[in-house]
């Protein structure tokens, strides 16, 4: 299925990537090419096949539900572009 510029704009927004209007036709074309490549999968009979959700058959381990780490907010914030008073800071979210 070909991707038009409206779909490309919607996908870019869902992906939270700003795309200039002028670039949308190029992106739509590239995405269409890749989606076209994927459509080879339609030739496979997958009736009754379970989707693969675990790479190696294994039971995930369990552990006690306890705090095992933490207590260093300065380290957590050390790489933040903007941190104030022990918190991550972002532009105003609520009016």
């Amino acid at each position: 299925m070909a991707i038009d510029t409206d779909t490309a704009r919607r996908v870019a927004h869902l992906a939270r990537i700003r795309v200039e209007e002028a670039d949308l036709p190029r992106i739509a074309q590239e995405l269409s090419g890749i989606i076209g490549f994927m459509e080879q999968l339609n030739a496979v009979n997958v009736d009754g096949v379970e989707p693969m959700v675990s790479v190696t058959p294994m039971q995930l381990k369990r552990r006690a539900d306890g705090v095992t780490d933490g207590g260093y907010p300065d380290k957590v914030l050390a790489n933040a572009p903007d941190a104030r008073e022990g918190f991550f800071a972002v532009p105003k979210v609520v009016e």
């Binding site: 989606i35 994927m38 999968l41 496979v44 997958v46 096949v49 379970e50 989707p51 693969m52």
Partner: peptide
Amino acid sequence: AYYNRARKVRTLIR
């Protein structure tokens, strides 16, 4: 149409 089908094909490849 895409993601789940691909995961089923992955089962077949394995």
